[in-house]
Design a binder for these strands. Structure first.
Lengths: 348, 348
DNA sequence: TATTAGCACTCAAATCTTTTGAGTGCTAAC
DNA sequence: GTTAGCACTCAAAAGATTTGAGTGCTAATA
């Protein structure tokens, strides 16, 4: 059986009403919509069909209907038209920030504030290259290495050393490091490369080993997938997600970057949706404890084709319209910022 | 009426039992302790006295007794002897970290993990002086200022500039900045000082203004009271703290650094306790929504007399013994680290 | 005089019972 | 195909009952 127009209308009304109220929707409620002009009995018949088709379900015999995952899916794919107005207020919220890290933190925050859901943002998976390295003497026993990576990601690393270095030594090391590492991709920087570099330069000393060790650590850190989250406590606002213990587990999961990257991996696999917005409803994602949640992710693009993800985690009964349109606006804004930034760097 | 020994013993047993079970404690339970050899009737009489004195209270007529704030207070001050054993496992948990920021984050984390309460740690209020400043060219339009502060607190600041600088300029600025600012206290670095410095050096340019602006911002940031927290979700584990909405408010408060610094201010005012451990029980702290919580804070010391605070936020029914002893051990360890570090810096 | 056994009493919490009402499916009429 | 009507269902709310841990008081005891 295909869904005819009337069934679609009724399904849409049921889901929209349920999204608003959170209560199972009965036939009487739907029959009251003027433009429908159908009695509750007719609605009941239609509802029985919709239930048979798996779009809605009764929590118990004498209750109204609530959407199934399949119902939500159909709603998101076919029935929901997006809100377009909300654009005005949002565009002012993102301040220009020239450090990617701070920018993405802010994105997560703004989004959580706007939607009242938990949000997560990953840095783009761009090829991270070293802009430059700066080695400085902090005191007799300590060096500081600062590594600036394309996108102004900055890593500081304290390097304890055994030997006292004079400024000339430090300068020499600086030149050595930058000669070899400037422009190098972080993935390429490993022990072998550094060994090669040592050989080629003819330099060798224990100090150099210590310094390289520090650089490797910093590079390793910089190369880790960063995930920025915000609004975790919003999860508490939606009791349907579960009892305290379930919510608590979910919250802990949300604090665990490992788990989150796992989640994002899973939810950004297939890019079949328009505008790169992905909606994962209920059990469509297989992470445990999240079967009562939906996850909406959007992909933003950097000029060189690198992409990052913005995600929203909320209850299945989520305001999909708002979330999708907010995400769209935000990715557009982000694309914009990255492209403008690129422009500044190239032209100015 | 004064508390005689027997009353003290009984009060102690009541509170200790309540801390374990979380259930109101009845006379029968207490009378079963062998070394007491009293009937429940006698205990009842004593309990009636203790209630009249305000140390315990009945949640309802036919229930056992639970401690009042006054009861907890007496327990903490006079009845509780501390656990001393737990030391062994803890001392290995703190890795040596040479950046204060990372160290304090780790302290918060370790403490939360050990106690299952929410924890907060403030950086010490030491006189922050500039160790050195490093200005580097990121690209044509951008400088990076790195400020290293005593205690290896590192601040990075991106400074956009209008004019192209060559390396010589940057070097010149570096020397200028370090000549004037090395060893300066952050509080002293403000616009006036910088203006004076400009005058005295005879340097003047728009670039310098932009650089100084950036430095001032970074200094300002570095000078803010940093609070590191961990284990916020532990709050969810103690249902007695309140229903979801109350817990949620508490959690949000715990994410708000402003609020937390307010809280810490309040709870570290009077230092009358031994070993600088402060216990604030229930309504003893006046922050709203925290009347069902207790806060235990400890003060750690840096060599120059600067101090910082470690705090634990948990339910009134908290394992005070464990918390106090854990905090003591941790402050000792911290004192140790700071003193050793100082040693390294001075001697090696 | 302090302690205790005994007993009637209290009251929250657990359990069971009843009522309510929103909602359904089915049928017969339109 | 639509709808009015009606018997039926069942979760949730409200009410009634039972249970049991705990109390305070009194009178007997050491």
């Amino acid at each position: 059986m295909e869904l005819d127009e009337r069934k679609k209308t009724i399904l849409k009304l049921i889901i929209a009403t349920y999204l608003e109220t959170g209560e199972p929707v009965g036939s009487r409620t739907i029959s009251k919509f003027n433009d429908l002009n159908l009695s509750s009995a007719t609605i009941r018949n239609e509802m029985a069909d919709l239930e048979e088709l798996g779009y809605i379900v009764q929590p118990h015999t004498s209750a109204g209907r609530i959407p199934t995952d399949k119902g939500y899916r159909f709603y998101v794919d076919n029935l929901m038209e997006e809100k377009e107005e909300a654009e005005v207020e949002k565009s002012t919220l993102l301040e220009r920030v020239d450090r990617m890290e701070l920018l993405l933190k802010q994105v997560a925050k703004v989004l959580a504030y706007n939607t009242n859901y938990a949000t997560l943002v990953t840095a783009p998976n761009y090829r991270k290259t070293v802009k430059f390295i700066q080695l400085s003497k902090v005191d007799e026993a300590t060096l500081l290495a600062v590594i600036v990576i394309e996108g102004n990601l900055i890593k500081n690393q304290i390097i304890p050393i055994d030997t006292i270095l004079d400024n000339e030594d430090v300068l020499k090391f600086n030149i050595l490091l930058n000669t070899f590492l400037q422009g190098a991709s972080l993935e390429d920087i490993n022990l072998e490369m550094i060994n090669a570099m040592k050989k080629q330069s003819g330099e060798y000393s224990i100090i150099l080993d210590q310094i390289f060790q520090g650089i490797i650590e910093a590079v390793h850190e910089a190369n880790e997938l960063e995930i920025y989250t915000s609004g975790a406590t919003n999860i508490l606002k939606y009791p349907e997600i579960g009892d305290i213990s379930k919510t608590s587990e979910l919250l802990e999961k949300f604090e665990d970057k490992e788990e989150l990257s796992h989640l994002l991996e899973e939810t950004t696999g297939n890019k079949d949706d328009s505008h790169d917005i992905q909606v994962y409803i209920g059990e469509e994602n297989t992470v445990s404890n999240m079967e009562d949640c939906s996850i909406v992710t959007a992909t933003y693009k950097m000029p060189e084709g690198a992409t990052g993800t913005i995600g929203i985690l909320g209850p299945k009964r989520m305001d999909y319209k708002k979330v999708v349109s907010t995400l769209k606006n935000l990715t557009i804004e982000l694309d914009d910022i990255f492209n403008k930034r690129k422009g500044v760097n190239d032209d100015g």
